[in-house]
Amino acid sequence: MIVANEVTMKFYTPGKAPFVALDSLSCQIPRGCIYGMIGANGSGKSTFLRLLSGVYRPASGSITIDDMPVWDNPAAKSRIVYIPDDLYFLPQSSMKDMARMYRALYPSFNYDRFHKLSETFKLDPTANLNTFSKGMRRQAAAILGLSSMPDYLFFDETFDGLDPVMRGLVKQVIYRDVIERNTTTIITSHSLHELEDTCDQLALLHRGGIIFQSDVQDLKTSLFKVQTAFASPFTKEKFEGLNILSYTQMGSVCTFILRGDRAATEAHIRAMSPLLLDILPLTLEEVFVYEMEALGYSFKDILM
């Protein structure tokens, strides 16, 4: 389990105030979870992953993996593989060379999986990695990471660069690892769509803090849209007692976003004898937008 407790990360720039990349961030990621993180560039996703990988040390607060701090801790690091957005391979190396190195670093490295995945992805393990396209290098990095069989695997915007077929393949491997070895995975992405499909937990990062974190499945059911009309004039007060996030009314028809239990809400409104009542689900993006607005942010601003 990953536990981040009030983690703060600052970057010193001479002559200016330090740039706060993470601001008292706290979260808990249980074993076996596939955790998605979404946020604009500079929101702190990569910084967070680097802290988790032991590359950075927090300015304050603590980051532990299974109760062990990661910083300068080879025992912890040997169970973690971090695949950064900006990939680095040893100069003039091939996938095979890198595999050999990974084998030395991670005793759990599995050559069978490596060969199988290389085949499946149609990548030549003996070719110089410099000759690979950007997408192929991402695939190679993913293969190497997965073949290392780590307990914790972090993909920093790796998926954004893979085509859907590859993505599906990688996901399958991840799922198997979750089942077989309770692997914990963190995936960061720009695309909510992608995370929605793969992850079971989702967090939104903005300016160094998690402003929103939730179980993906719950998210979809946490909010819904209600459209209803009444014969007699009414105002919003009519719906006092309901947890309304956003309310618009045009004449006798009103539309609002509601948090709560759907059946109970339906019953409540029906009891008022509406002329019409529609309860509609929201897409994940819409859920996000309204949740953000409720928190005081504009989602568009956050993701742009």
């Binding site: 912890a76 690091k77 040997s78 950064p84 990939l87 680095y88 670093l105």
Partner: peptide
């Protein structure tokens, strides 16, 4: 260089090593 630096700091060895 950031890429290389991150790489060498992520591998499972102590800094001293």
């Amino acid at each position: 260089k950031r890429k290389e630096s991150d790489f060498y700091h992520a591998i499972p060895f102590t800094r001293g090593c």
